[in-house]
Design a protein around this nucleic acid. Sequence first.
DNA 1: AAATCGGGGAA
DNA 2: TTCCCAGATTT
Length: 368
Amino acid sequence: MTVDEPPIALSDQRRQAMAVRLLAWYDRHRRHLPWRAAPGDRADPYRVWLSEIMLQQTTVVTVKPYFDGFLARWPSVADLAAAPLDTVLSAWAGLGYYARARNLHKCAQEVVARHGGAFPADEAALLALPGIGPYTAAAIAAIAFDQVASPVDGNIERVMARIHRVEKALPAAKPEIRTLAQTHTPPRRTGDYAQALMDLGATICTPRKPVCALCPWQADCAAYAHGAPMTWPRRTPKAAKPHRTGLAFLYYRGDGQVLFRRRPEQGLLGGMTEVPCSPWLPQSEAAEVDFDNLLKAAPIAANWATLDGQVQHVFTHFSLALTVLAAQTDARQVPVEDCFWHPLDDLESLALPTVMVKVLQHGMRQLR
DNA sequence: AAATCGGGGAA
DNA sequence: TTCCCAGATTT
């Protein structure tokens, strides 16, 4: 294997042969997933759409129980459209990227109102729906409707970057890689081809240690010929995450109810339920604000007990350390708008993001 | 073009 | 720890 050999320029004929070989590999190694139809059958667009939204930046293993739960609770897009948003958010709780859940609900309502309850087959019409971007529109068009479309996800990006040894770094290389993917897309069995390519990326052409010995495209791969396929795709380094701190106010009653608050519709954890908190300040700013000042953010003044330790949580673009303060009361009224009392033994009906589950667990361990 | 938006599994 | 996952939307 040479190190300086240029990438292989692939002819149309060669790309066609590659697609045939990949589909043959897929027919032998096809994974069964809950949203996939039996071989030869047309997939249910509702299932394909629901799975594709859940799978955005989320692993198959994580999605499976959520997919099963949603399908059991809302068997059709009309059922989902008729559900209150809060029940959708609570069912989505823990899956992350909560704008997906809000857009999922909005999309279901648009499919019912504007498309008679049936997803459009056209890629452009799909792209116009909430929460459906370029990848998802192409994926639904190809997988559910067998249209010729080229979805490009992280797996396909990686495969294309290796096959063609793309030197430009991601994310700047996305347009180039999208064009490359289109030149490989076959005119028939396009949905199977897209899923085959994603399976290839998930099981063979993996980020760390690709299993090139089992790859149906080994002979076509410029990165394999180079000898170090794992060094593609190139990526621009990511910025370090800043750190934020804040207080969480755990206010509990003798009858087992705790004070919660609904977060604003927009922004981080939008529309989700939280334990009331002070602002989450960058560490540099938090150092300038004294403890008593942060206490003013509490919805009810109280004789707070500071719990030991902190709750640690990492979001996409910052990490967070919350100090939990606890106080007991027999208050019945709702002190501030958007706040409400809710029994601790019925957390399932709340839309609690993971960081708030951590806060409650942190509190329960020390208050019993 | 860059920033925002979760959470978890794997190495 | 670091990486990255069937990305979309907003700024």
